[in-house]
Design a protein around this nucleic acid. Structure first.
Lengths: 140, 140
DNA sequence: CCCCTTTTGTTTGTATACGAATATTTTAGT
DNA sequence: ACTAAAATATTCGTATACAAACAAAAGGGG
């Protein structure tokens, strides 16, 4: 590998791997009419429903401007609702709509299947190191 | 961690880590008026100049439609040129312009500095596992 | 109570990222 | 040589991603 190859950079390796995995998710989630990122938002709401917008963005390590657009599309499709925060008129709370509650187990089964297909390519030690390193980078 | 947390999914971990690292790159590359992805394109051309469009897209594991836009911006800024492929009128060749040749070492020094700052957070064993796993996923 | 600062979410502009449709050209089969 | 199929790059539409500017509301100091 030449010293000029982009693949020498860890950022490129991360980006390439992430795009491969995410594209695989997208293709398989498409029949459910949901994107990978939208699935993450629903996952967070399945964990804690009725959460503040800002808190949701922080849990997803996502910029607020990005989350606004994703919630627009999830709301249009009937997966979530925005409601006023009675304690702070600047803030809003995000709730799951019935459609998201109904399909929860179906969505999760598929996502776990996809995740296991990645996991099975590696030893448990490799995978443990991978998750530890990614978590450390991600939480920095 | 609840079984509904998005951070249980390896795809989410990858995405979050990639966004953190890439944002760090973007901030530091901004004074050079170049993005992280544009830097990867130049890196590939520093390795092999005058390469076919399709070949370049494959080296970068990038969709052709994405590369078209990136080359538009690199060409507008005077970093690369597109030229006709004399062997195939459908194809085109991508060349470095003088501006990219001039700043090559400056760009590379900065990118290596950023990369080393990530690398130094981990043991050499952890980093070796990380790169091996990311390469395997990325080349699949 | 008033003003200044901070916080919160949206909007706007730009840059990836990619599927689908398209125009042009090449290749392959007959 | 002719035609159908394949290959190549672009364009279009949609979805992230994020910086910067913005409007509305809350907080804090006087």
């Amino acid at each position: 590998m030449s010293i000029f190859s982009p693949s020498q950079y860890i950022c490129f390796k991360l980006s390439r791997a992430m795009r491969k995995v995410q594209r695989y998710y997208e293709v398989n989630l498409a029949p459910l009419e949901i994107t990978t990122v939208q699935f993450y938002v629903l996952s967070s709401l399945w964990e804690t429903n009725g959460v503040k917008f800002k808190e949701l963005a922080q849990k997803l390590s996502m910029d607020g401007a990005t989350l606004t657009g994703i919630l627009d599309r999830l709301e249009r499709q009937g997966f979530v609702t925005r409601e006023d925060d009675p304690e702070d008129r600047r803030s809003l709370l995000v709730f799951l709509a019935d459609k998201a509650k109904l399909h929860r187990d179906e969505f999760r089964r598929l996502a776990e299947t996809l995740d296991n297909e990645i996991r099975d390519q590696f030893s448990s030690g490799e995978f443990a190191t991978l998750t530890r390193v990614l978590d450390q980078i991600g939480k920095s």
